[in-house]
Each structure stands twice: as C-alpha cells, then as structure tokens.
Nucleic acid binder design. Structure first.
Length: 804
RNA sequence: GCGGGUAUGGCGGAACUGGCAGACGUGCAGGAUUUAGGUUCCUGUGGAGAGAUCCGUGUGGGUUCGAGUCCCACUACCCGCACCA
C-alpha cells in the first residue's frame, strides 16, 4: 500500500521521470499500426511563462491522447515553440540581448513548466520555428509559393510612428498613437511581399464541407472568406471617356441607383483631378480619411460623411439619367471595385447617406414600408416596380434578368466577390525568417537555390528597425550585398522577414518527421500521420492561423508534397479562463493566476482536474481557487479508497461502476470533461456509502481517472502490485447490461404537475404503467371529481394524466 | 452598425432527440471525531409557507398533455469585425 497521506510533491516528480525514462509517450515510426494524431496549438514562449489558459487545451488533448494509447493507437502528441515574434524582439532591443538567447531561456522555462504538469508529449519531436533546421523548410515553402506566382510585391501601407521612426504592428497602435512613446502614427506606404491567398478562396470554402470542425468555427471561416454573388456594372462617366465599374449584390435595384460613391483612394480622382472643380476639398477629405485606420474609419463613422465630386457625374446605364458621384470613406478600396452604385431605397447605409445629403430615394422593390422612412432591404420577397422591363418580377428573377441584360450590352457581368484579402507577408523586423530572395538589377527578384537554405539571420548587435520603417536587416550591407544566383552579377538580399504566422502555418507537418534533412517530411511519414485527427485551440485563432495554415496545406497538396488537401480532420475550441473577478486575466488587472503556485500548493493532478472540471469546455469561465481545493479533496478521497479495498468485485457497485465507465468514455469524446469528472466523483461517493470496494473496481476507476490525474493513478496502480503502468493498460470496457438500474421511480403528473411517484421496472409495459399511476393514492386525490380526458405514458419515464 | 455566442440557487455549473429543474463541486448551517483550530466523516441546503401547497431557468407572448429545451418579439452581457455594397 502507498503512503497513508497523499503527497503530490513526492508522487508527481517520480512518475514524470519514469514516463520520460521509459519513453512510453514516444510516437512509434511503425506505419503498420493504427495511428492517432492529437494536436494543440504550440505555445508562444513568452517571458511571463505558462498561463492557466495553456493547461486547459493541453490537459484536454492529453486526456484524448492518453485514452487513445489505452485504446491501442500509435499516438502522436507533440509539442513545439512558436518562437519568432514581437515581444521577444522588443525585449531584446530594450535589454540589449540577442533574441535567440531570450527565446532559449523562455523555451526552457516553458518546457519545465509543461513537464511539471505531466503532459504526455513526445519531447523527442520538439520543433522550434526559430531553429534554422526548421525555418529552412519555411523558406522552402515560400520559394515554392514564389515559383508558382503566389508571392508578389505591392505597395501597402504600414503603421509608422513619427516619433520612434519605426513601423508598428496594429497591436502597438492605440487611438492612432504609438503605444510606447505616444507619438502620432501615420500610414506609410511601402513595397511589401504579399501571398495570394485569394486564389484559394473557393478551395478554402469548399474544404470546410469535408471536415469535422465545430459549427462556430466553420461559420467564422466562411464569413471571413465572405463569398458573395452579384454583378459588376459599368457606369459611363459624363466628363471623361471612361466607365466606373461597381460591384453589387443587388443588380436588380439598378433602376433605383440615384448616385454613386467612390472610395477616397479611388484612382479616378487623381486621374481626372483637372475635371473635378472642388478637387482641393476632395483631397482634404481623403487626407482626413487616411489619418484613420481602416477600423476607425469604418467604426467611428456612424454619421456618414462625404464630398461630392463637382462637375464629374456618371450615367445610370438603364435609366440614362445623370447621377452625382460622391467620395465617402464608408466605401473601401480593398473590397469590390472601390466604387458602389447607391440605392438608398434598399440599402441602409445608402439610405442614411442620401437622407443626410438630400438625394432622391426611389422605390424599385415593393413590399416594404415607405422607403422615404427607412430602407427596404428584404431581397427574398419583394417585387420590382419603377423598373421598366423588370416590373412585376421577384427579386431573384430580376437579378438574373438584369445581369443578362448587362452582359448582352457588354457593360456588366455576373461576378463572385470575396471579402478575403491577400496576405501581407512582409515584416520590417529582425526576429523572423529571412525571405530567401535576392534582387538583381538585371534579373529582378531571384529565389535562392534550395541548397543555400536555410538563409540564416545575420549576426548583429542592433535589432532596431531602420529609421524609415525599414527592416533592421537593411543596415547590414555585408549581409545584403551578394551575387545573383541567376547571372552571378552583384545583387542585394531582401531585408524584410516573414510574419510569425509563417512558421505556424505548417509546424504540425514537421512533427511527423522532425529530423528529416532531405525534405520537410518523408512522403511515408506525411501519408501515415496526416491529416491531424484532432486539433484543439483558441477561438482567437479561428480565422487567421486556421485559414493561413489551411491555405499553405492546400498549396502543398497542389504541388504534391502532402497527399491530402485539408490538414485538420477535426477542430475544436476551448473557452477562455477569466480572472477570479470575471474579467480577462491580465497583469494590469492584477488577477493573473500562476500555474506554478497551484501545482506547489495542490499538486499537478488537482490543478489538471480543476481545469477540466471548472465548467463547459467551450465556455469562458472565471477562475476559482476554491474549485481547485474541491478537486484536491476528491483526489484525497480517491487516495483513501486504497484502504477500503475488499475482495475483487463489490456487487453493490456493479451498476454504478459500469454506468460511470460508460459515461466517462462518452463524455471525454464529447469534451464534456466536467460531467465525466462529476461521474467519477459520484462513483467515489457511492463507494464511500457502501464502505468498501473490490480491487478490480478500484483498478477500473484508476484507469478512467488516469487521463485526467495521471500521477496519483500511477502511484495507486503500482501500490496494488501492478508491474506495468496504468497508462499502458487497456481502456476498460463496460457491460451494457449493467448500465441501467433494474427499477426506477418515475413521476406521475396530473395536468403537467407532479402529483405522485411510482416504482416500476424499466420494462413495465405502458398499459401497466398507466394502471399503476391511476391507482396511486396521492394521484387519486387529484382525480377526485374530475374527468380523465387522456393519459400520456412514456415508457420508463413518465405518466401524465389529463383531467377536466 | 454587422456577425457569432451566452443568460439556470450565494457562486461554478448539470439536465440525452420536449418528459421528476438544480447532478457534481463550492459556499453556508448543524452534528461526530479533536484539548482547540485545521483536517476528515455524516446530515441538511432554490424561494415563500406551520402545513397541505404555491412560486421558480433574463423579460413578454405563443405552440404542447407537458417547455430551461421549440417558435415570435425584446433586454442585458461577452467575443469578433474589414460600414463588405
């Protein structure tokens, strides 16, 4: 028997060492075994160390990984470090220390903390995005994208602090000012590398049909990609021989287009500046709009603003009427064509704008209220009016007919538009993967030959970005100056680095074959381990990371590197852990809970159990240290069960045990960890009520509890005389015959209110249930003097007597 | 403003496809053990009422024999956002 008193400190370290020494959690490279790949998002090793949010996802997937091993799968449950990134770089600059040193220190700290929690990671497959052996392949993928024309350079604005003279991430910009120095932030246009994710918009959308992602995630991905069908239409300019192209999802309302709006950045404005009589006013408006970030520009603009382009009208192609053109910042250059036809009667934003500027509102779809009072936007049921040849048609038919009409005249066509934009891939930073391209005055942009990868970061003392928002690498002439791999002439390296997203877009593939020097992974390993069977992560990564990595994976599939298009078969999400006061945990709020303290005080198992027990896995839950105490008490009670073992099986516990095993298994799979643990607690309570339990009963409890609280279970398992570890045992099977009680007390209702109870066998026929219910004494009292209209009997559940 | 979510005891939460609301934990109260505190064990614990009973799942309607669960309208809070034409 193990010690009388449960002491996590002595138990936990011992088993962590045994797991490590025995290598029980190493994934085997025997590709004939049934495999299971469990994945968590690899952490960013921040200087603050582990946060209580990390163990939530980690424990959940650790439970699945441990259960799968017990079910006989060859499990891959890896860990790595998403280690490039801004905080490390900023820390390095501030403290004048190399980011690689900071990274190493943080990674070591994180690893130690994770080990302390007993996760069954295969540490032999660790990856680190900042390791040249890893980013060699990140650069390799980029070159493939470049080769296929999916990487291109274009002018894009960056946030630029006018005081620090450096480019800033969105996160560092608060209210148009630099988060660090408070200086004013402007938009500085720079030439940047872009990835054409938009080429994959449809594939990324279609791929969602074949994967098992929780619905919320699918919806968010779909909305982010934002496919919409509509039409393009050309409006002739009155003052120039050109046409203004718009995209609309409501071509049916074309007869109601009474004005147009272009984005302040629309190229026609400068192109025809000499024909716009109030061009200075327009430029002033544009300057104002540029001062705002896109988010501000759109959010703050509750009250519509705009300026008319004087003397520069357009012609509505179906009515032939001249209509004015406005500039307004509610139209964005980055979506559609940067210009819209405004139909105030049937679009809320247009209606607001028209009302403010006194523009005509013409109803072309009937079926709503007065369009002078509010826009009528229902596109399903309306019927066209005031629209010549469209009159009388329903909206969907009108859309078809007008689109055909525009196509015949050659001034429009059916189009699909996506909200998704191309991915800005350049960063003017030091701590990222160098972009392996060389610019040659003769040959243009030339990729580095594969054998020259990895292109490592140059050694330097200065990690600060250049004065004009340039990369810190821009000042390192020795590194920059090189020869063109194509013509051998003098050339210069690209100085921008890749965003943090690059490494995280494919890291999960590297786990499959992490030490391969010839390829990012052997075809056999990639075919065997992929796709990831279950990927859990935070909702905050639902759009960007998930979409970027799916994009890269689809691309790798298209060029034959991986044998399947979708990287993740299943994706789930966990809720955020809030501070004890119900607010988001943050240093500034002073409500941060440190995992180390919890482990020291209550043990890793109690901490893990609480993280899983605290509430619904997908919901945000406030932290409660009282809850950890409760979980520790439960484990103490489990510990004490070892002195209550008598014989092999306890008959009185047979049904509770089988029910519990069934529920725990099912609940783990559904990520209902809280109710699984509740079921185990209830079983322990049952055993206490009986006063003892069989040795085999206890072993089964240890087996199902083991994924949640592995250390204590190993200790108790060993104390029972078992030679192999509980994590190596077989997941227990339950007997369906003992999963339900033989008899049950059910309620008898009269007019829907519970009035009595009867004890019945589960298989009592309905007729008999009815007779029993009607003869119940308490029920009789409520039937007295009334007429029984109807009796509803649900077998094994309830009887409801309807009386008048 | 748009999109998505959530709302149940003092607190965290449970409730399968509509069938006994409050499992499990916490907190609280009482008891046992203990010199005492703590620990542990046992009992009770949605509200009102002496009681039979009545009232209770954010609000207001509805469907149903029966609604936390389904439908309609609303309110509050949380998350995301690129006014997406």
């Amino acid at each position: 028997m193990a010690q009388e008193i449960y002491d996590p400190a002595s138990v936990e370290k011992k088993w962590q060492d045994r797991w490590e020494d025995s290598g029980v959690f190493h994934a085997k490279s025997d590709f004939s075994l049934p495999k299971y790949y469990c994945l968590i998002e690899f952490p960013y090793p921040s200087g603050n160390g582990l946060h209580v949010g990390h163990p939530r996802s980690n424990t959940a997937m650790d439970i699945i990984a441990r259960k799968r091993r017990m079910e006989g799968y060859n499990v891959l449950f890896p860990i790595g470090w998403d280690a490039f990134g801004l905080p490390t770089e900023n820390f390095a600059i501030k403290n004048n220390i190399h980011p690689a040193i900071v990274t190493k220190k943080n990674v070591d700290h994180f690893r130690e903390q994770l080990k302390m929690l007993g996760f069954s990671f295969d540490y032999t497959r660790e990856v680190n995005t900042t390791d040249p052996e890893h980013f060699k392949w990140t650069q390799w993928i980029f070159l493939k994208l470049f080769e296929r024309g999916l990487a291109y350079k274009t002018e894009m604005p960056i946030n630029f602090c006018t005081q620090c003279k450096v480019g800033l991430a969105n996160e560092e910009v608060v209210d148009n000012h630099c988060e660090r120095c408070g200086g004013e932030v402007i938009q500085l246009v720079k030439s940047q590398w872009m990835l054409k994710i938009t080429d994959y918009a449809q594939k990324l959308l279609d791929g969602l049909d074949d994967v098992d992602f929780i619905e919320r995630v699918k919806t968010q991905q779909r909305n982010w990609i934002g496919r919409s069908e509509g039409a393009e239409a050309d409006f002739q300019l009155s003052a120039a021989p050109e046409k203004l192209k718009v995209f609309t999802t409501r071509p049916d309302t074309l007869f109601g287009a009474t004005y147009m709006v272009v984005s302040p950045e629309h190229p026609y404005i400068e192109k025809y500046a000499d024909r716009i009589s109030n061009i200075e006013e327009v430029r002033a408006y544009r300057k104002q709009a540029q001062g705002k970030s896109e988010f501000e520009r759109t959010e703050l603009n509750k009250d519509k603003t705009g300026v008319r382009l004087e003397g520069f009208d357009a012609v509505n192609p179906v009515t032939g009427k001249n209509i004015p053109i406005f500039v307004s910042d509610y139209v964005l250059m980055s979506y559609g064509t940067g210009a819209i036809m405004a139909v105030p009667a049937h679009d809320t934003r247009d209606w607001e704008f028209a009302t403010k500027f006194g523009l005509p509102i013409i109803e072309v779809v009937a079926g709503g209220e007065d369009v002078q009072a509010a826009a009528y936007t229902d596109s399903a049921n309306g019927v066209l009016v005031n629209s010549d040849f469209l009159n009388g048609l329903k909206v969907p038919e009108a859309k078809k007919k007008i689109t055909q009409y525009l196509e015949e005249l050659g001034i429009g066509k059916k189009t699909v538009n996506y909200k998704l934009r191309d991915w800005v891939f350049s960063r003017q930073r030091y701590w990222g993967e160098p972009i392996p391209l060389v610019h040659c005055p003769k040959c243009g942009w030339v990729p580095l030959p594969e054998e020259q990868l990895p292109l490592k970061l140059p050694e330097t003392e200065n990690f600060k970005p250049g004065e004009n928002g340039e990369s810190p690498l821009a000042g390192l002439t020795e590194w920059i100056n090189t020869t063109c791999p194509h013509c051998g002439g003098p050339a210069q390296r690209e100085t921008d680095t890749m965003p943090q997203w690059a490494g995280s877009s494919w890291y999960f593939l590297r786990y499959m074959d992490p030490h391969n020097h010839e390829a990012l992974g052997s075809p056999e390993a990639l075919a065997y381990w992929g796709p990831v069977d279950w990927y859990n992560g935070g909702m905050e990564h639902t759009t960007l990371h998930l979409l970027y990595s799916r994009f890269w994976h689809h691309f790798l599939y298209d060029i034959g590197v991986v044998p399947y298009a979708e990287p993740y078969a299943k994706r789930t999400s966990h809720g955020m852990i809030l501070g004890e006061n119900g607010e988001k945990m943050s240093k500034s709020r002073g409500n941060v809970v440190n995992p180390d303290d919890m482990v020291n005080e209550y043990g890793a198992d109690a901490f893990r159990t609480y993280e899983m027990f605290m509430g619904a896995f997908d919901q945000a839950i406030p932290w409660s240290t009282r809850g950890v105490v409760g979980c520790r008490r439960f484990l103490d009670r489990v510990w004490k069960l070892q002195s209550m073992v008598q014989g092999e099986h306890e008959a009185a516990l047979r049904v509770p045990l089988n029910k519990m095993v069934k529920k725990v298994g099912e609940d783990f799979e559904a990520m209902k960890f809280n109710t699984a643990i509740a079921a185990m607690m209830a079983f322990v309570n049952d055993a206490y009520a009986v006063g003892h339990l069989g040795k085999e009963d206890f072993k089964v409890l240890l087996q199902v509890l083991n994924p949640v609280a592995p250390h204590i279970c190993e200790e108790l398992w060993a104390a029972l005389g078992e030679k192999t570890m509980v994590c190596q045992s077989k997941w227990p099977v339950y007997d369906e015959a003992y999963c339900t009680e033989q008899t049950r007390e059910i309620a008898v209702q009269v007019n829907g209110k519970v009035r009595g109870r009867i004890e019945i066998a589960m298989d009592t026929p309905e007729e008999e249930m009815k007779a029993l219910a009607l003869s119940d004494e308490k029920v009789q009292a409520f039937l007295d003097g009334k007429q029984v209209v109807k009796v509803i009997v649900v077998q094994g559940k309830i009887v409801n007597i309807v009386v008048k």
